[in-house]
Amino acid sequence: MAGGGYAWFTEDLALGLNFCLTYVRGVGPDAVLARVGGGKPVAVESAELVGRAQDVVADLEAGDAELALVAATAVGDWTVLFEPNGYLATYDSVVQALSARGELVSLYHNESTTPSFTWARDGSVVERAELDGDFQERTLARMEELSGVRLTAGLLRAAVFRCVAVPYPDPAFSTPSRKTLAAARRALRAFAADPDRSELLDVLWDERGVRDPRLRATGHLGAMLFTSASEAFRLLAGCDDAQLRAVVRWGRERVRAAAAGPIEPLPSEPLAAALHVVDLVAEVLGGRYDLMTDELRRALGGREPGQ
């Protein structure tokens, strides 16, 4: 079996550094997405654009709520699922649901964890293994042997993927609100219509009704904090530069007191620097972004923004 002609996959980082790739037999793309809790899918052309669309999902996550972007396309009697930076198909409940009355083969890779291969049939795992060495090439060849699906660079470029954002079935994560899931679909639709629109950020700020160029310039971190701690974000947005520098000093002290390690160099722009330290303090508090408004008011000594 050897590498089966899949050297291009690793050389080109065809699906990026972190991904989950799954083949499901006997179930069409929309039905597969429904089995993992997806709503009405959005069509996105090419795996490369699906990888970029992951940003829209990440930017909509709030607090402990995490979303998986799942993209599905039909290849013969099989459905190919691609999760950029995802791992939904590693959960036993998902493997069982997707392989029920059918079959599943899956490759999961993440730089920070141990890669794995899963083969399941009729809701039961037939084989699960941790991988090492040139595992991507060997595992793709094994998946082709089991499914008959030959993954090619041309297929990944030409395929139209049906995409949904769904929550992970993990009790450690909070459940995303309907509002968040609806916003994810709207943002995916906007991305599919115009993938080159300012790396999705214009779309996200438009969704939030934010027009101020200073706020929009805060980038992905600003968009995430606007979702996770909207009131705290607006509080910082109203601060003058002196107040923002005071927030940065306060944040450094909070992180230092928690022995959370040194703070990397911060942006020179005061609002961007303040947003970074707020994110760090929230991490120190166990991801409690909901506490940040009260924390910031204490950091400002009770003064209102701009005073």
Rank of each mutant, 00 (worst) to 15 (best):
A274P: 10
S228P: 07
E103Y: 08
F161V: 05
D240P: 00
Y168E: 04
S106D: 04
F117Y: 15
V105F: 03
R25F: 06
D12M: 12
L275I: 03
G3M: 01
F191D: 03
T180L: 00
E144K: 14
L266W: 08
S112G: 13
R52C: 11
V255R: 10
L225F: 06
A58P: 13
R208Q: 11
S198C: 14
A34R: 12
L88C: 01
A34T: 08
R297G: 11
V278K: 12
A273K: 08
V149N: 10
A89H: 10
A242M: 08
P270A: 10
G261V: 05
A47G: 15
N110L: 06
D77T: 09
G219E: 12
P262W: 00
A7H: 00
A182Y: 06
A229F: 02
G28D: 15
R138T: 12
F19P: 06
S174P: 02
L188Y: 06
L156P: 14
L236E: 10
P84T: 07
A282P: 01
L13V: 13
V27W: 08
A165I: 03
V50E: 02
W250I: 03
D212T: 15
V149M: 10
A187G: 01
E231Y: 02
S228L: 04
V160N: 11
L151C: 12
G86P: 07
A2D: 05
G26P: 09
P213L: 11
P169Q: 14
S116H: 05
A100M: 05
D92V: 14
D30T: 10
G5Y: 07
R189Q: 01
R216S: 14
A193E: 02
A58H: 15
L215D: 14
A47T: 09
A97T: 04
A97L: 01
R128A: 15
V164R: 07
T90G: 13
A260D: 15
G38S: 11
G123N: 12
E207D: 13
E199W: 15
V105C: 02
T22Y: 01
A159D: 13
L280G: 03
T218H: 14
A2T: 00
G76F: 11
D206A: 08
R252N: 04
T180A: 01
A14M: 08
V44A: 07
G28S: 15
A65P: 03
K179Y: 00
S174N: 00
S99W: 06
M1I: 09
R254V: 13
L88I: 00
A2C: 01
G251C: 04
F19Q: 05
P195A: 07
R288Y: 01
L140M: 11
A299L: 11
P169A: 14
